[in-house]
Design a protein around this nucleic acid. Structure first.
Length: 112
DNA sequence: TGGGTGACCATAG
DNA sequence: ACTATGGCCACCC
């Protein structure tokens, strides 16, 4: 009960650090947090992000291929794409164009 | 106790 | 580009 809440909190914290106009992957966050827990849990955390008081830019988290696999978990399926486009990230066929150009790796950017 | 399910990932073919 | 596996671990029967 309490254990996973800590994990969730850490995930939310990292996601909040993602700059506007950038994006990262579930696996990158899991790895940054120690990889003791799988990237599936990051997705699980995103599932709970809607009930957070603080704003969590979940739309900046995609899978390793830059695909918007979480779009169906937003209020409407097109919100995620809209938010990304609004930040200057182009999306085509539910996939970020030039993902590596926008990729934000917490391991490197947060330099730990 | 155990099986099924994920907003995943790496690897192999 | 695709499928198939195995690993991952919290959650829900």
């Amino acid at each position: 009960m309490q254990k996973h809440e800590d994990f969730f909190h850490n995930v939310f914290e990292v996601v909040r650090l993602i700059p506007k106009g950038r994006a990262t992957s579930y696996g990158a966050i899991a790895k940054y947090l120690g990889s003791a827990r799988s990237s599936r849990m990051v997705g699980w955390a995103m599932n709970a992000s809607h009930s957070q008081k603080q704003y969590v830019p979940a739309h900046r988290v995609v899978n390793r291929n830059g695909e918007l696999t979480g779009k169906n978990h937003f209020p409407t399926p097109f919100i995620m794409e809209e938010l990304l486009e609004k930040e200057g990230i182009k999306v085509l066929n539910d996939k970020i164009v030039n993902f590596n150009k926008f990729y934000w790796d917490p391991m490197k950017e947060l330099e730990l």
